[in-house]
């Protein structure tokens, strides 16, 4: 029988090996989670939104295929934007036989907190080809100001 000192054993040699093992296990779990061909945008709320800004406005975009502007309710209160609506799927009738059913319908509500103060009176919304775009102009007090340097 070969005698080895206990700390030379590969698994108990280093203090904290248990933590390392746990870390590896966690990493493996997470890479499995992301690695299933899914995008890293997992949110689980509807609709998913993309928010961007330029110097003047904040833009909120959402994909709502098949919806009509009338089915949507957009409201702004302070720095909170609320999107509410119902996606109604056309009923195909009772005599049909479904082969695939992947599209979802139903009611939804999404509340977003905006990153800056906006001017609620000047908010515009556009709907084209199933994509909603909301343009929220920034409040004058948060607009960047250009300061002219004068020669004295």
């Amino acid at each position: 029988m070969a005698l080895i000192r206990w700390y030379e054993h590969p698994e108990v040699a280093r203090p904290g090996w248990e933590l390392d093992r746990l870390q590896k296990e966690m990493n493996r779990l997470f890479s499995d989670f992301w690695g299933r061909g899914m995008s890293p945008f997992r949110v689980g709320v509807y609709p998913a939104v993309n928010v961007s800004e330029d110097t003047k406005n904040i833009y909120v975009r959402a994909e709502l295929p098949g919806m009509k502007p009338d089915d949507l309710e957009i409201s702004v209160e302070g720095d909170t934007l609320t999107l509410r609506g119902e996606r109604k799927l056309a009923q195909a009738g009772e005599t049909v036989n479904y082969h695939r059913r992947e599209r979802e319908g139903g009611r939804f509500r999404r509340v977003l907190t905006l990153p800056t103060k906006i001017d609620p009176g000047a908010v515009d919304a556009f709907f084209k080809d199933g994509v909603l775009k909301i343009v929220l102009p920034k409040a004058p007090e948060v607009m960047p100001k250009q300061i002219q340097v004068k020669t004295s």
């Binding site: 195909a92 005599t95 082969h99 992947e102 080809d129 199933g130």
Partner: peptide, 22 residues
């Protein structure tokens, strides 16, 4: 794209969500 496909007596209908496509 997410699709619904259903069959009626005389046709097969496919409905696909393609937001942003004109």
């Amino acid at each position: 794209p997410a699709v619904d496909i259903y069959e009626s007596e005389d046709a097969l209908v496919l409905v696909a969500d393609m937001p942003g496509v004109g």
